[in-house]
Write a protein that binds this DNA or RNA. Structure first.
Lengths: 158, 158
DNA sequence: TCGATATGGTTCAGAGGCCGAACGATTGGC
DNA sequence: GCCAATCGTTCGGCCTCTGAACCATATCGA
């Protein structure tokens, strides 16, 4: 990890710097990414925020789940899931069904409309990918995706 | 990017999924990263948030700058820089000096105390890096850092 | 069977972060 | 020497998210 820029910093009497850190890079690039994604969603004019999409992804990922389970998966307060689900239900993207086995639980499922919406989000995601990583070589892009995949897996994320 | 998991999804009648997207990965991992960094800063008990560190990094990166320039660099409203600088000044990490050439401008500089503080943040960053990427091979980690570097450079970030 | 306790969902008030519109101080153009 | 532009600051408000109530339902124990 001692590359040319580090050597330059050292010559200037400085440490490598926080900017060479993984957390820092991930943090800043993460904000940029969600920022752009937010704008792309705004273009849909459906009042969607990244968290709405996060909920749909969580729904799509596993078996039908209660709102509490979803909140846990998303690392978010259950009360937030309520409002997210409210909005998605209003859009017809999500369906709330009382679990007959336990009538306290609301089982959320993605409707066909929700699938279509999620597909649109995915398309937007790919566009942004091209925009972001357009100047990376195929190999670089592959390495990046793979490394991020490892990281996510290591942290127990989707 | 058609790998095994994509093939699996396709077999299940699904598209590759938003989760295979770069924006999505960057977004989620970015939140995790800033989340952990925030907690690390909390341990300092100085009331610091990632944006404070961002300001210090911006100060450290270039020549002495006015608050407007810093706001532009950080992609943030000038009024926010005021409160960030207020707090850092109160900690003795930053110094405000009126530019004699243009007495409207406040020139911010990092004090020695600020440097020490920034070093502590960097140390925390490296700890988190070890925690995050501990299970990656050296080559993977190098590839990741390099790719993120490319991305950041392409977007005009530090 | 019935009461006590726990759990899922919802509502609501409020904390926290951030922006945009004002405003005073200072500058540069004419 | 006035007028417009610019810098920093203050302040009001929006938006997001959480935690504490609350009702409905379920489970446990006697």
């Amino acid at each position: 990890m001692s590359d040319a820029s580090d050597a330059h910093d050292a010559a200037a009497g400085r440490l490598p710097g926080l900017t060479s850190t993984l957390v820092f890079k991930l943090g800043t690039l993460g904000t940029v990414a969600t920022d752009r994604f937010t704008r792309a969603l705004d273009a849909f004019e459906l009042g969607l925020k990244p968290k709405h999409v996060g909920l749909m992804v969580a729904l799509d990922a596993g078996a039908a789940a209660s709102q509490q389970e979803l909140a846990a998966r998303m690392g978010v307060a259950p009360s937030l899931v309520v409002s997210l689900a409210d909005h998605l239900e209003q859009l017809g993207a999500v369906q709330r069904v009382r679990d007959p086995q336990d009538r306290r639980r609301q089982v959320l499922t993605l409707t066909d409309e929700g699938r279509r919406l999620l597909d649109r989000c995915e398309a937007a995601g790919h566009e942004l990918d091209a925009e972001l990583a357009g100047e990376l070589t195929g190999a670089q892009r592959r390495a990046l995706t793979e490394a991020l995949q490892h990281l996510a897996a290591h942290l127990g994320l989707p």
